[in-house]
């Protein structure tokens, strides 16, 4: 039964129809980005200021997340870490998203030998565990955030490429793709202007999950000393700072850990909701 609607749904209808997961995830992510951009507005102390009068204080009203072994305020450090960790989420994934999606689009459209070759490249890369491969590349390039981005970039694009290629293969069989060809449009126009916007949903949804994974990865490398370097506040580094005091001063590691969990949850919820939203809209 097709219903011909006279007008497009109004804005408040759209907001009303959004999946709850998307709204909750959106709120978490919005708050995270605000903290990332303006940490000083919310952090009560300088995150790097030593206070030898308040070493390893348990959470109190003055220091809600407690202090570390240099007397630095953990709340301020966790807040300031948002800047680096959200940056990792975006910067580690942005190049893979773009490159992977574009390559996937071309591969999916071309098919044939190109696709077979791409398939072997994907197989070769995903045979190795992701973390092990990143660690290997970072140890060659040397520790640091930039090298981590490079390492992730070398591997991560294949996931987007694979998702997009599969979706393009579905779209290119639809009549509107043929219509574009019959209209005399160049293949590049058919792929990038017509097919790709209709084929980006899986990559877009995966991107949300991937940003959460990037934060986990960044924290793991930070913990291992291969990512962000101390004294920079980064959740993985903070957790590593606290590892020697785990039994006596649990708050040093626990609160950064919670920040990772909550931000990751935000990305996941938003991604789930986005998938549902894009699926039901058509």
């Amino acid at each position: 039964m097709k219903v011909v609607t006279g007008q497009r749904p109004r804005m408040h209808r759209v907001l009303f129809d959004l999946p709850a997961t998307m709204i909750i995830g959106g709120i978490i992510l919005f708050a995270s980005f605000v903290l990332a951009f303006f940490p000083s507005l919310f952090a009560p102390y300088d995150p790097n200021a030593f206070d030898y009068g308040a070493l390893l204080h348990a959470p109190t009203l003055a220091h809600p997340f407690g202090t570390d072994n240099y007397g630095r305020d953990m709340l301020s450090r966790v807040i300031h870490a948002y800047t680096i960790d959200m940056q990792i989420a975006v910067f580690a994934t942005i190049v893979p998203v773009i490159v992977g999606t574009l390559i996937g689009a071309v591969v999916g459209y071309a098919g044939g030998l190109t696709e077979a070759f791409f398939g072997r490249v994907v197989d070769a890369i995903i045979t190795f565990p992701f973390l092990v491969l990143v660690i290997a590349i970072v140890s060659v390039l040397g520790p640091g955030l930039i090298n981590m981005y490079i390492a992730v970039g070398i591997i991560d694009w294949v996931f987007y490429g694979r998702l997009t290629a599969a979706e393009i293969k579905v779209q290119k069989r639809l009549d509107y793709a043929d219509a574009g060809r019959v209209m005399g449009y160049r293949p590049s126009r058919v792929v990038f202007r017509h097919l790709l916007p209709n084929a980006m949903t899986p990559a877009l949804v995966y991107w949300m999950t991937d940003m959460a994974l990037a934060i986990l990865l960044g924290s793991s490398l930070g913990y291992l000393g291969l990512g962000a370097q101390p004294p920079a506040a980064e959740w993985g580094v903070l957790i590593a700072d606290g590892k020697n005091f785990m039994t006596t001063a649990w708050w040093i590691s626990i609160f950064p850990g919670l920040a990772i969990v909550i931000t990751g949850l935000g990305f996941s919820l938003f991604g789930d909701g986005l998938a549902e939203f894009l699926r039901t809209r058509r």
């Binding site: 009549d175 509107y176 219509a179 209209m183 005399g184 160049r186 017509h194 209709n198 058509r282």
Partner: peptide, 24 residues
């Protein structure tokens, strides 16, 4: 030359649902 040919020989498709790009 091929594009010029396609300009002059056009096709209309069977499926009214898949033959138009939903995003345009």
């Amino acid at each position: 030359a091929r594009r010029a040919f396609n300009r002059r020989v056009q096709m209309i498709f069977q499926d009214p649902y898949s033959s138009l790009n939903p995003r345009l």
